[in-house]
Amino acid sequence: MEPVLLAQGAEARVYAARLNGSPTVVKERFAKAYRHPDIDYRLRSTRMAQEAKMLLRARQAGVRAPTVHFADMQACALHLEHVDGPTAKRFIQERTVEEVHAVATAIGEAVAKLHDADIVHGDLTTSNMLLRGGAADQLVMIDFGLGQFTTLVKDKAVDLYVCEKAFLSTHPSSDALFAHMLDAYKASSRHGAEVVSHLDKVRARGRKKICLG
């Protein structure tokens, strides 16, 4: 039977599968013909391994994330629990203001939990968050291939900065939404205020850069 392609993300193809009767997905970081095979294999294998490790740590930190069933080192593929529901990106585009606000709160709280466990996600876009069953309070974080352990406030602020840029360049007039997400983050993270104030510095760094040519 042909595997059913569910999505092609930034790095991987995600197929529907089954394991012991329950629905799973296979996330395959397939070979990319555009880049040198050495670089290609190095990236695919390290990111797969990193993702498997970080998914587990995220779950230990109390953040919803898919269970890892199996890692196929040869194909650089992870077999993950299937999360049934839309991405936060689609949810934000389609739902009511109240529901969207609730999701922003959930995102702020989930990122706070990750950061309090010294995990930065590395690619906090709304494509990398799913809402199980389409419920605003069932936020599941995915795509941890760029995740890192770090205790540095600076790294956590950069994580939020990535998130901000993704919000603003995907969701029309999302300044208020992102601000709401930050409020939720500040309220629930131990070092929230410190990280958010560092975010201003990270933003300024971008603004100050001189561009020649």
Partner: peptide, 19 residues
């Protein structure tokens, strides 16, 4: 991987993608 084509020997360098 890397899909066919001719490739040269690669001197390994750091890879700097952050998100």
């Amino acid at each position: 991987g890397g899909g066919g084509g001719e490739h040269g020997r690669l001197v390994e360098l750091p890879y700097g993608v952050f998100g």
